[in-house]
C-alpha cells in the first residue's frame, strides 16, 4: 500500500464521487457518477447543494479577505501601478479623438443627405393601403389571437418554443393554461398548442392520450 493512501477516509460512495468530480474541478451535477447516484438517492441532492454552497461561501470570504489585505498594504513610495503618469500637455490621443469626431460628423452629413434625397426623389405615397387590405390583415390577426386565447392563456411566441412532434405536428410546450378538473379543483399545466390536457376535453384525447390518462389520476387536493 502506498504511503500516501489515506487509511481513515470513510467509504462513502457519494463522497467519493463528489471528490472525484471536485478534484477534477467538474460541476458535480454534470458528473455521470454523481447523477447516477442521485437517480437512486434523490435525498442526497440537498447534501450536495449544501456542500457546494459552503465551498462558494468560503471562496467569497477568502476573496474578500485577500482584497482587504491588498487594499490595506502600506505604500512605501514605490510606484506599483505600471501605468505611466498622465501627461500635462495634449497627447496624440486628443488628435485621434478630433479625427474621430470629424469622421462621425461626415457620416452624419452623408446620412442626412441620403434621407433628404429619398424624401425628394421618392416621396411617401399619399394614398394609404386599401381599407379592405388593412381590414383583412386586422381580422386575420384578431382571429388568430382570439383562437389562441380561447384555448390557453398565453399565445406562443418565438419559433424556439415550438418543437416538432414525431409525425410532423408542431407543438408549443411552453404554453400554459389553467385547467379545472371535474371535481372543481384547478391546476395550471402545459399543453400542446391548441389542445388542453384535461379529462373534459375530447380534442386532445386522440392527440395526447398519455396526458389525458395521467391527468385523470392526479390526486385530489
Amino acid at each position: 500500500m502506498p504511503a500516501e493512501r489515506p487509511h481513515d477516509i470513510d467509504r462513502d460512495p457519494l463522497a467519493e464521487r463528489l471528490d472525484r468530480a471536485l478534484d477534477a474541478r467538474r460541476d458535480p451535477f454534470e458528473d455521470e457518477a454523481v447523477l447516477a447516484h442521485l437517480v437512486e438517492h434523490p435525498d442526497d441532492l440537498a447534501e450536495i447543494e449544501r456542500l457546494l454552497a459552503r465551498l462558494d461561501a468560503i471562496a467569497r470570504v477568502e476573496d474578500g479577505r485577500a482584497e482587504r489585505e491588498r487594499a490595506s498594504a502600506p505604500d512605501d513610495g514605490v510606484r506599483l501601478d505600471p501605468r505611466p503618469p498622465r501627461p500635462s500637455r495634449p497627447s496624440r490621443s486628443s488628435a485621434t479623438t478630433r479625427r474621430a469626431g470629424v469622421a462621425a460628423a461626415a457620416l452624419l452629413v452623408l446620412a442626412l443627405g441620403a434621407l433628404a434625397y429619398r424624401l425628394v426623389a421618392h416621396p411617401t405615397p399619399d394614398a394609404p393601403r386599401g381599407r379592405a387590405e388593412v381590414a383583412r390583415d386586422d381580422t386575420a390577426s384578431r382571429a388568430e389571437t382570439a383562437s389562441r386565447d380561447a384555448s390557453f392563456g398565453a399565445p406562443p411566441t418565438s419559433p424556439a418554443t415550438r418543437v416538432p412532434e414525431p409525425g410532423g405536428r408542431v407543438l408549443d410546450w411552453r404554453v400554459t393554461t389553467t385547467v379545472r378538473r371535474p371535481d372543481g379543483t384547478q391546476r395550471t399545466i402545459r399543453t400542446p398548442d391548441g389542445t388542453r390536457g384535461d379529462a373534459a376535453s375530447t380534442s386532445s384525447a386522440s392527440d395526447h392520450p398519455v396526458l389525458i390518462a395521467w391527468s385523470e389520476t392526479w390526486p385530489r387536493r
Partner: peptide, 24 residues
C-alpha cells in the same frame, strides 16, 4: 496523496455540519 486525503476529509467535515447560515 496526503494533501488529497486532507482535502477530502475537509469536505466531509464541511458537508457534515448541520448549522445553517446566510450562505446555505
Amino acid at each position: 496523496g496526503t494533501v488529497k486525503s486532507h482535502l477530502h476529509r475537509a469536505r466531509r467535515k464541511l458537508a457534515a455540519r448541520r448549522d445553517g447560515g446566510p450562505s446555505d
